[in-house]
Design a protein around this nucleic acid. Structure first.
Lengths: 221, 221
DNA sequence: GAGCGCTTTTGATCTAGCTCAACTCCAAGC
DNA sequence: GCTTGGAGTTGAGCTAGATCAAAAGCGCTC
């Protein structure tokens, strides 16, 4: 049940959890299988999570099933706290995902007795807000190829510019993140491949190599 | 220069500023004319603002001029603080707008010596994040008519369900908020009028009456 | 290692919303 | 009053991206 699907190379933002939770980490670990729900929209926020390995998506649904993914959470990322007392969206596992869990109450109590705590909590929420602001610009005003280019650069940055970028999520997930259909995402990727900005690596279509980050960044506008 | 364009009926969220700034309000007032910039993206955040009357839009631009408006700020709203040290977007006046200004530094100093301060600052940023999350769903997954219906209901709610809803912003502003063109906004409004969900009031097209909020809410999905 | 199901790609067609353009309606200035 | 200009509406046609469909590729399980 706990077999790792990815090796984790000490992500850049790993300090977050320690800064908030403190050093003698009082938390348990848990592994969610692919597609399992971590928490649902409207549920009370009891726990806070940090990803050890895998990937989580958080999203909102319209009544007819249309889905908008807010964000993907990767190893090192903290999530479930930005919410306030009640979760404002659903979170589930994109692939098998191992998380560290601590109770929200425990974490907030700790924060109250720590000067830096309040500040780092505010920093966390502010960072989320900043991401959301950038994403609104993308959703409202970018073309499909610009969206996909921006997505690739975001994943590349968050994985510290690896030689091979591995995407844990499906084309449908990417589409629901970018406000497109899965076919349009696929076509945009093919366009970028044909224009020599990336190539697929190995058999799977989820490993790819960015061949020209500069050109991608220009597309991102 | 200071003539009011709207009467203000003590907005619901007016407590914000007082809660953060304190009672003996140390701040000056200023009036911006229609179209004037309050602050620009990338500028250092020196001041924090609360709207007395009028309306402010905050937005980001792509290099070729495409614009995405994050939010409209109406009387009572606080803005310019959520940013952190540097403004992440531009703010300018939709119409002639009177604001109360206080220095960011002054406000943050005050907050540090106040238990409730940190919490209410966090609450403010969290509220902004929540708005952004809802707006991402709108931008990524709603149709033009759904977007316009949602916009009208938002304005209606924020003005406390007035008999006549007055929109300070142009069709182009609404379009740039909803990720549409101004023509599409105009057509959507005409559709809603034809379907008896609203009617225009008086001469101007910026005063309207919501005839069936329930039906609008259904559209909002 | 054959078969099945899921994911992805690619093609063909459709359509919501964009673009371009004309016209109306005010409001402001002379 | 007349003129000018910005704002809004409406129409006609276009296009980016959606939808529908088929096939290919991969990773399961047995």
């Amino acid at each position: 049940m706990l077999s790792m699907t990815r090796t984790v190379s000490r992500p850049a933002n790993d300090g977050q959890f320690a800064a908030l939770v403190g050093e003698q980490v009082c938390c348990s670990e848990f592994t969610y299988r692919r597609g399992t729900e971590v928490f649902g929209e409207g549920e009370e926020a009891e726990y806070v999570y940090q990803i050890v390995s895998g990937a989580i998506r958080t999203y909102k649904l319209l009544c007819d099933g249309r889905r908008q993914i807010n964000s993907f959470h990767l190893p090192g990322d903290l999530f479930g706290l930005e919410n306030g007392a009640v979760h404002r969206f659903t979170a589930d596992a994109v692939i098998q995902t191992k998380v560290r869990i601590t109770s929200r109450r425990h974490l907030l109590d700790r924060i109250e007795h720590q000067e830096a705590g309040q500040a780092s909590l505010l920093t966390l929420v502010t960072r989320n807000l900043q991401h959301a602001e950038n994403h609104m610009l993308l959703l409202g005003r970018k073309t499909s190829v610009e969206k996909v280019a921006a997505f690739l650069l975001e994943m590349d940055r968050r994985q510290d510019h690896p030689d091979v970028l591995s995407l844990p999520m499906s084309r449908r997930d990417i589409a629901d993140y970018l406000g497109l259909t899965l076919e349009t995402v696929s076509r945009a990727l093919s366009t970028l491949r044909d224009d020599r900005m990336l190539r697929f690596d190995g058999q799977t279509q989820r490993q790819l190599v960015l061949l020209d980050r500069q050109k991608l960044a220009q597309l991102d506008a």
